[in-house]
């Protein structure tokens, strides 16, 4: 039996054994766009909003839908996924079922914490999916703005009370 025949037998076997599983997964389509009211040249501290539309384009309901937002930094030398902890309170949405043809619209607000070039993407899976479905990327750049720098504050914030506290202690010790 060659490899092609074996694969065909495997598909038939899987279809018979797992009728409601992978091959019945509803196809999902995700559109992503930036809100028209977003600042054209956002800087640190600004808020952006993205809109996503998740559509079930298949003929079967999508059960147990989970969609989530991901953010990656892409400027040279700083490529990394971003922990959304400070950026966004809404990190995922869930639906128990999405009927065929139904659209799920969602808003994804975001606070810009750090300067750089970013790509945002919405991903979704349903219970029967064999692979994740993703939206197109939405790219944006965050401008730097002068904010408080911890490397300057920490020495002063810890040094000054210790300095004065030390003077008080020395005087107190001398008096005793």
């Amino acid at each position: 039996m060659n490899a092609g025949s074996l694969a065909r037998w495997f598909v038939v076997f899987a279809f018979l054994v797992f009728p409601g599983a992978a091959f019945a997964a509803a196809p999902l389509d995700i559109a992503l766009s930036a809100d028209g009211r977003n600042p054209p040249s956002p800087q640190m501290g600004d808020r952006l909003t993205f809109h996503s539309v998740i559509r079930n384009t298949g003929s079967a309901p999508a059960q147990g839908l989970v969609a989530w937002i991901s953010l990656v930094r892409v400027d040279a030398g700083h490529e990394r996924p971003v922990d959304l902890e400070d950026w966004s309170a809404l990190k995922a949405l869930t639906r128990s079922a999405v009927a065929p043809g139904e659209r799920i619209e969602a808003e994804w607000p975001m606070r810009l914490i750090q300067a750089g070039d970013y790509r945002v993407v919405i991903s979704a899976v349903d219970r029967g999916a064999v692979r994740v479905v993703t939206s197109p990327f939405a790219d944006f750049h965050v401008r730097r703005k002068p904010v408080v720098e911890s490397r300057r504050i920490l020495p002063v914030a810890f040094g000054m009370p210790f300095l004065l506290g030390g003077i008080v202690l020395v005087r107190w010790a001398r008096k005793r």
């Binding site: 640190m44 501290g45 400070d86 606070r111 914490i113 703005k145 002068p146 904010v147 408080v148 720098e149 911890s150 504050i153 920490l154």
Partner: peptide, 11 residues
Amino acid sequence: VSDTELSLLDN
């Protein structure tokens, strides 16, 4: 510097 909201305030 420790509060996210405050740390994003302009200098």
